[in-house]
Write a protein that binds this DNA or RNA. Sequence first.
RNA 1: GGAGUAGUACUCAAGAGGCUGAAGAGGUGCCCCUGCUAAGGGCAUAGGUCGGGGAACCGGCGCGAGGGUUCAAAUCCCUCCUACUCCGCCA
Length: 424
Amino acid sequence: MLDIKQIRDNLEPIIKQLNLRNESFDYLRDIVKIDEERRLAIKEVEDLKAKRNETSKKIGEFKRAGNDVSEILQSIEADKASIQELEQTIRDSDKKIETALLNTPNIPHKDIPIGKDENDNKVLRHFGEVPTFDFDPKAHWDLAQELDILDFDRAAKIASSRFVVYKGLGARLERALINFMMNMHVEKHGYTETLLPFIVNKESMIASGQFPKFEDDAFKLVDERNLYLNPTAEVPAINLHRNEILKGEDLPIKYAAFTTAFRQEAGSAGRDTRGIIRLHQFNKVELIKFSKPEDSYPELDKMIEHSENVLKALKLPYRVIELCSGDLGFGMAKTYDIEVYLPAYETYREIGSISNAEDYQARRGNIKFKRDAKSKPEFVHTLNGSGLAVGRTVVAILENYQQKDGTINIPEVLQPYMKTDTIK
RNA sequence: GGAGUAGUACUCAAGAGGCUGAAGAGGUGCCCCUGCUAAGGGCAUAGGUCGGGGAACCGGCGCGAGGGUUCAAAUCCCUCCUACUCCGCCA
């Protein structure tokens, strides 16, 4: 959420910067007007309340002394209605401002590329060699079918389309990757291991920025409690510290979280219908940090390095992209995508995304810190990054490590986890 | 799922509508006292947020959360959340 005070003081620059997202945020001008009226009403009602408090005190004193209070009572009778009326006005304004702000995305960082859509994203760097094959490389779904390690038909029978059953060494590869990634981030990169709820409530979805804008993407439980299937570990992890004031000395706080993610893929009907690139359920290892504002960009750089290290260890070719203003996610100020090369697609596909939300989620979730015991609480900055999407990593391994005979070599670092060097 | 109890500041805890933004204790901090330590004594210790103001400061809200009754609510009423105990079910 953006700060209404900041908007108040920098209205035009903020609108200008937000408009780089290729939407119009001119409505913020009206919001600022409502905010002005609201503050006038607050001043008025608080003065009335101060008067009422004083009068009430006096009534107490009079009664104890046994004096008549009817005259005093009469003197504030009219105020009661005014207070109620003003409070209603304030409530209405609050609601309008809150709704607008909850639906307003984060301000893009001033240094990110300006652009319309993903075509304007900026490629920052490449790693690894795109593999060359002396045969026609197959798509992962064909490889998987021949190896009998993925089963889409039975998954559809059990659940629906966009689910998969992993089988045999396919299942073990998924599990190996989860363990490998978690171990790396915990042991080498110093993140604290967490295992979080896979179901989250509405407050958590709002704080992390999924709601109210993207309710259609979530799986809602049929239940009066407003519970949803976790769409990304970012949601439960960010909410670990919702409504908390952290100690400055504890920052940055770094969590690594494996979760299964559930998504409706509402706007993606017909896209990536084959294979396991886009499923309703997939596994992901996620990195989350809570940092001091001044540290968040250096921490972002470290985080992207941590994500890249996974692909480097697996020896998978990838590139790093900086998202332009038009492609930037709702709650983020700056995002890097990591895209892995997929031979069957003859292109790079997203396998991870690393972002700095600055204080946007912190403000929604009321996550603060104190520099020391005496100082005023400030909002933290929150960062999240994939470390990585496990299913897509399986795709990348199957496709990049495939052999002419349809078998798959296992990357060296995974062999201890797989207890084999080939899937055949 | 049933039946019950409870949620007050860092912790424990008092609290029957006005004198309670909250007794008391512990803890913590500073000081005094002793050669050092222990013990003892004194003082301090509600945060947070919103509004006004250049600021000092003033004011609103606040006793799990949200509503309500009242001139006035920690205290009365309603809804919800959480924790605990017992029973039932269960990996």
